[in-house]
Write a protein that binds this DNA or RNA. Structure first.
Lengths: 204, 204
DNA sequence: CGAGTTTTATAACGGTGTCCCGATACGATG
DNA sequence: CATCGTATCGGGACACCGTTATAAAACTCG
């Protein structure tokens, strides 16, 4: 260490480029072969490095998962924010719900990382929780517009309505992804009808 | 072997009593210390047998989980069937939803075994799927009564309504158990209001 | 150019699920 | 009653996991 603790970082190959390569490959493994295929040894071998890299760059497997988790939420939030507003805020809520399902089905393994415990003893960090809250905002905003437009009673908090919608879509999507749905049932139409029923149920 | 290959099985200590002891202990471990504490070695040691017992009695860890899964669904179905009928089928739907949450919160680890992938590469068997369908029936029955009573339009299948209710309660409960809910929010009242909104949204 | 420090890969540790394999103990047979 | 055959069972081996201690390598600085 030079004088006065000036930190002059020595060169490293465990750099940011390797970090993104690890994250990319981890996402690939997760999407193509499922959570059980994502082991540190396999991951390190696939990008021609050692397991130590994961520890120096992330801190361990849970931390790696946390990074993936953040990325997944970021993309998810993007999708939901991209839903165009119409002049009917209640319709917006329904559309956000439909976009939610699209996003989940587009990359099921990521969805499972976000909301299911695919890795034992994995606890999202605070920063990650904040990101998750971001993904929640478009629905809250739509619900607020709906209340302001008079479609819903003024004494209900928009957060409550948004949470109800979120619970519904998350529940149906989870059941769908886990294969818990009764066989021989077309899901898409039921999904939309349930969404509209929920949206209508809150009307003043 | 006596003549004509009559199979006279030799005595075994891997009998049904050991089977239930293993299942009991497995449930205990799951409930008290979580999924990561449920290892075959630990389980076998706790009931004074060997890991082989699990393989001869169940077939492996996934199969053991499948048995637990069945037991969990059995209890869950009991809870839902025990919900008393009132003269208002729509109110019955709401009560079933509330009972669902109670059942899930009573033993969260079991709920996670049922609906979350706590063990990688665990696929419920067909028989188990049938049991899961049983747990679904009380809600379908209530929805059917609601349609017959005229509360809901005749052209909606009771299964659709029941599925929507199931999705809602499952989603909210999952979010609650996974800690994905926005902090500082009283859940119980929101849960019930969302339930009623969903039930009302289907009204003719 | 040598000393020292950072950085990295290798290997070890304790754990897991799974499976083979030899010891065992019982029922049927002579 | 003695013997044999066989089904059964527990211990150990195997491959893999996440994690970490260690020792070699590479770079900076005096």
């Amino acid at each position: 260490m030079s004088r006065y603790d000036v930190p002059v970082p020595r060169p490293k190959t465990h750099d940011d480029a390797l970090r993104v390569r690890l994250l990319d490959r981890a996402g690939e493994l997760l999407s193509t072969e499922g959570p059980s295929a994502l082991s540190l040894r396999r991951l390190a071998a696939d990008v021609n490095t050692s397991t130590t890299a994961v520890y120096s760059l992330f801190g361990g497997k849970p931390a790696l998962l946390d990074a993936l988790y953040q990325e997944a939420f970021r993309r998810f939030a993007e999708r939901l924010e991209a839903v165009a507003h119409t002049d009917d805020p209640v319709e917006d809520l329904v559309r956000i719900g439909l976009a939610y399902r699209c996003g989940a089905l587009a990359d099921p393994q990521f969805y499972l990382v976000m909301f299911s415990k695919v890795v034992p003893d994995f606890k999202p960090s605070e920063q990650t929780d904040a990101l998750a809250a971001c993904a929640f905002r478009p629905a809250v905003a739509a619900a607020r517009r709906a209340v302001e437009s008079g479609a819903y009673a003024e004494d209900v908090a928009p957060e409550q309505i948004a949470l109800a919608m979120w619970g519904l879509v998350h529940g149906l999507v989870s059941l769908e992804l886990n294969g818990n749905l009764p066989a021989g049932l077309e899901i898409a139409p039921v999904f939309e009808r349930a969404l509209r029923a929920q949206a209508d149920g809150w009307r003043a």
